[in-house]
């Protein structure tokens, strides 16, 4: 037998400890505050992840938990995972080809590390200049 009885008991005990610690972490409510994004905050995030990109325009999502920026032919996308923001880019046309469903737009990035991001936009595609 590959896994000894002692290993299995130890693993089971550790699994219980993992659940207890996670429960304590949840109870403590120590997640990072996630204030509603405004344009300045979104620009700061975009600048951190795309320092060399010139941002033409920014759209904040309807729930303030995501944003899209246009940078030339590119769409820079910011969306939430947990209490942090994830940034990705793709071509503007690819991003605008996403279909909104019930006010939510799911953008595919073709990236195994972040296959898709969800943003609340009732109006889609976005129109530059508006």
């Amino acid at each position: 037998m590959i896994f000894s009885k002692a290993f299995l008991i130890q693993t089971a005990g550790s699994a219980v400890a993992v659940l207890i610690l996670t429960g304590i972490a949840a109870w403590a409510r120590l997640a990072k505050p996630m204030p509603i994004l405004d344009e300045a905050a979104a620009r700061q995030y975009f600048t951190q992840d795309f320092p060399a990109s010139k941002i033409d325009q920014i759209w904040i999502s309807d729930d303030g938990r995501g944003a899209v920026a246009r940078s030339g032919d590119l769409a820079l996308v910011l969306f939430v995972a947990g209490d942090g923001y994830i940034a990705r880019h793709l071509t503007w046309d690819q991003a605008m080809a996403a279909r909104p469903v019930n006010g939510q737009v799911v953008i595919s990035f073709h990236d195994i590390a972040a296959p898709r991001g969800q943003l609340a936009f009732a109006t889609w595609p976005l129109t530059p200049g508006i």
Partner: peptide, 8 residues
């Protein structure tokens, strides 16, 4: 800071 899913 601790986020529940991150911690798990």
């Amino acid at each position: 800071h601790y986020e529940t899913r991150d911690t798990l």
